[in-house]
Design a protein around this nucleic acid. Structure first.
Length: 845
DNA sequence: TTACAGGTGCTTTTT
DNA sequence: GCACCTGTAA
């Protein structure tokens, strides 16, 4: 379950009066006396200073595993304990809702008292909260919808179709990415148009797409993810008095993961920490807003104190507009800022840290920072080169079982990968080995079609002008309302300046068939009736409305009235049974929501659902292995980490190659992955990887050779590359003394015998490796021409073969063409495998 | 209007 | 390998 939305705290206009102690020129006054606060127990000197420092601006450079969360939490607790702040004066911004919930809990645990009124949430949640309050000021309904990327895509698709913009090469994806990027820079269609080369028809078209997109969102009273930040900045800039109220309220701002803030978020932080001018402060006072005890000698309200925590080495969201200059320019932006470095690592063994340091050291243009641990070297990193993605998954699964047998809980293990597509092979194998696992993020629950359908009903009730939601449910379940009718309704609405919903109510005027008209009216009435359910039946003396239906009641009413659930239940498609169960799960979630948020309304529920992050649905209590992308892994830690797919093209990813700073960002991603591990780290790669349904040969990642050889114990090494040929990435940190086959080498010559490097078994002292030089001779004998197809090996069903590792087996079938011919082999002991004939270590017998 | 068949293109990461 | 799109038949 996700983090409950906090009950709304007191509105700013009635906020409690503030404590006068905001600034302390000497830093920290201390909680009195010589006694050290228990808050500082077990902290090192740098951490202590980070907790106790009092001043306008503080930058904490926190290396991975340096106790950042603990410091941040204690700092908040300390601010409260020393009476430097009331809870309601604190705004702490975290990266995920989960981190926010954790922080809230820990502050509560430390202080044992209410942290009520404190805002601990993500950038997006905080902004929604502000925007819902101030919505009418910027021409929005307070029940505005929040569009996710899928909603954006659908909207853009319609616009592009309407403009025939695909002839200019625009796709919903490309246009969406560009718009998002601009919004992160706080640009809008007009400002973009002013600077664009408008003699370029493509630019003109883009501006038009951008304009129409914005207009559609407006008409639907909707904001996309980027707008949530951008519109809040706009609100503060356009309405100084509104901004002043929030500046007055939030006296202490704390921002986690500052290296991942984009320009819009940076601007937001700036707006919130700006001083209130004497004139404005006076105006507020005249309006009856209590500010006197906050004003300084000049009559102004000084800017709030700002604490940011970050680590540029862990910046992995540049593709989303994150700009590390925000962190590197902090001292320039906030003159007199204090900078504290946390370098001692409390998480990982020294071997893991040494690997991490070595890797990240290859990024230039960074302030050198070396993590160190007092915890000893620990185990070596385990390396494994698999034959295929499935083989790799098998290795991971086997090792998980070994660790588990040795007493490690499943929940303490995690498997990381670069792309979501890699889960397929992993899941297949984990299911087969009955390993309990869960995919964190991935295809998220709320992104499933049936869930989006059900939610669209709720959105249509909460925000009646949202055309997107209405059109989604118009013919779901099937009501005989086809695309022709849908566009008919839409243009009818446009022509008569009606909303889509009003057009539905007036559908009789369209002259459609009685059946279709009836279906449209029935849906409109259902939604109207649901909206009525929400209206409170009475009001208490304090003005609190009572009697309105809660979220689950409305949802169940809609599901029954629309027949959505019944339709799935009665379907003969077995998949629909699962979909029905998912909807039941959603109903259960609304009931949980009611319980956890007695005051929460429909809009609150929808907001919470819109803003869940991948990492939020992590349930620490579940005894399962966690599978997730490297991006999702940030901020988490595990006893044992499997970092899979450490291959060229995957890590670094192919797509990053053209982007400026791409390879460096990929390296940081690798670094983030490594530093998640506490005790055991496994790096694995595959020599072939299935992609887009066919199989490709993969190369070991360049980052592997950046790790000192003595830190890795290769169970199966990719082998030593290549002294001849020379175009391929060079030797990995395989042991130099052994005679490894040349994985990279043989690729370089356009051929491959498969398991060049299989001869090494890491710590094994047996001379299993081929003598140096011998492999070369062997290849020299075998290689004829540029491409060798495993010596021209022809296989057909029925043939017996011998495999280097799997032993003997029988070929059941041969599929594919040319270099991608695949033998489906039933091995006598190793089971069924698919092998790429060209490179598999096999011979016919 | 719906259902289905066949073709196409695609994946980096996410609030 | 799959999701999505398009075109066709009922």
């Amino acid at each position: 379950m996700t983090t409950p939305l906090n009950a709304e705290s007191a509105p700013v206009t009635t906020g409690r009066s503030a404590t006068p102690i905001i600034l302390d020129s000497n830093g920290y006054a201390g909680p009195g006396g010589t006694q050290q606060s228990p808050l500082l127990d077990g902290l090192n000197p740098q951490q202590k200073e980070a907790v106790e420092y009092r001043g306008q601006a503080l930058l904490i450079i926190a290396g991975a595993g340096s106790g950042k969360t603990s410091v941040l939490t204690r700092r908040v607790a300390s601010l409260l304990e020393t009476r430097d702040a009331w809870p309601s004066q604190i705004l702490a911004i975290t990266f995920t809702n989960k981190a926010a919930a954790e922080m809230r809990e820990r502050v509560h645990a430390i202080l044992g008292q209410g942290s009520d009124g404190m805002w601990i949430s993500t950038f997006h949640s905080s902004c929604v909260r502000i925007l819902r309050r101030e919505a009418e000021k910027i021409g929005l309904s307070s029940t505005f919808s929040i569009y996710d990327s899928a909603d954006t895509k659908v909207t853009l698709k319609r616009i592009i179709k309407g403009l025939d913009a695909d002839t200019y090469g625009f796709t919903p994806g490309s246009a969406g990415a560009k718009i998002s990027k601009l919004k992160n820079e706080l640009a809008d269609a007009d400002s973009y148009a002013r600077n664009a080369n408008m003699s370029d028809p493509q630019e003109v078209m883009f501006v038009e797409i951008f304009r129409q997109y914005q207009a559609r969102l407006r008409a639907a009273s909707a904001l996309d993810f980027d707008d949530l930040i951008g519109e809040t900045v706009y609100l503060f800039r356009a309405f100084p008095k509104v901004a002043a109220l929030y500046r007055r309220r939030f006296r202490h701002l704390l921002v986690d993961e500052y290296q991942d803030t984009n320009h819009a978020q940076y601007a937001l932080v700036h707006e919130l920490t700006r001083p209130v001018t004497p004139e404005l402060a006076q105006e507020m006072e005249d309006d009856g807003v209590h500010v006197r005890n906050l004003r300084d000698a000049s009559g102004a309200i000084p800017g709030a104190s700002l604490t940011v925590v970050g680590d540029s080495d862990q910046s992995i969201y540049a593709f989303r507009g994150a700009d590390t200059r925000n962190i590197s320019g902090f001292e320039r932006d906030y003159p007199g800022a204090r900078v504290i470095l946390l370098e001692q690592n409390y998480r990982s063994t020294q071997n893991i840290l040494s690997a991490a340091n070595a890797v990240i050291g290859h990024n230039f243009d960074r302030t050198d920072k070396k993590l160190w641990s007092a915890g000893g070297d620990g185990e070596k990193i385990v390396g494994f080169t698999a034959y295929s993605g499935h083989d790799e998954a098998q290795f991971v699964s086997d090792e998980i079982q070994v660790l588990h047998a040795a007493g490690m809980a499943y929940r303490d293990m995690a498997v990381f990968y670069r792309t979501n597509a890699q889960t397929r092979a992993l899941e297949e194998i984990l299911v087969r080995s009955a390993t309990p696992y869960r995919v964190v993020g991935g295809t998220k629950f709320y992104e499933r079609a049936e869930i989006k359908d059900a939610l669209a009903y709720l959105i249509a009730v909460a925000n009646p002008v949202d055309e997107l939601a209405l059109r989604r449910i118009l013919n779901t379940p099937k009501r005989g309302i086809g695309p022709a009718t849908e566009t008919g309704l839409s243009s009818f609405a446009d022509d008569n300046e009606l909303t889509f919903r009003q057009a539905m109510r007036n559908s009789a005027a369209l002259g459609l068939g009685p059946k279709v008209t009836g279906a449209i009216l029935e849906l409109a009435e259902l939604l109207d009736a649901a909206a009525l359910m929400l209206v409170p039946t009475s009001v208490t003396d304090d003005g609190v409305p009572v009697g309105g239906a809660n979220v689950s009641e409305v949802l169940e009413f809609l599901l029954n009235g629309s027949g959505l659930l019944a339709g799935l239940r009665n379907s003969r498609d077995p998949q629909d049974e699962v979909r029905a169960e998912n909807i039941e799960e959603l109903v259960a979630q609304t009931k949980d929501f009611n319980k956890e948020n007695p005051d929460g309304g429909l809009v609150d529920f929808l907001t919470q659902v819109s803003l869940v992050a991948a990492a939020d649905d992590l349930d620490d209590a579940s005894g399962t292995v966690s599978l997730m992308t490297l991006h999702t892994a940030k901020g988490l830690e595990y006893e044992a980490v499997f970092l899979t797919g450490v291959e060229e093209g995957l890590l670094p990813h192919q797509m990053s190659a053209n982007e400026p700073g791409g390879p460096a960002e990929e390296r940081r991603l690798f670094y983030v992955g490594i530093t998640r591990a506490r005790k055991r780290l496994y790096l694995s790669l595959a020599m072939t990887r299935a992609q887009f349904g066919d199989i490709n040969v993969a190369m070991p990642s360049r980052y592997l050779q950046e790790i000192p050889a003595d830190l890795i114990d290769w169970k199966q090494s990719p082998g030593m590359a290549n002294s001849r040929g020379g175009t391929q990435p060079r030797a990995l940190n395989a042991r130099r003394d052994g005679g490894f086959g040349g994985f990279g080498n043989s690729l370089g010559t356009g051929s491959n015998d498969g398991y060049g490097g299989r001869s090494s078994y890491g710590t094994s002292k047996q001379p299993v490796g081929l003598p140096p030089g011998k492999p070369k001779t062997e290849w020299a004998n075998k290689i004829t021409g540029t491409v060798r197809d495993n010596g021209g090996l022809e296989l057909q069903a029925g043939d017996r073969i011998r495999h280097h590792d799997f032993g003997e087996g029988r070929v059941n079938q041969v599929t594919g063409e040319g270099t991608k011919r695949i033998a489906h082999v039933q091995f006598d002991t190793a089971g069924a495998k698919k092998l790429l004939i060209k490179i598999a270590p096999i011979e016919k017998i």
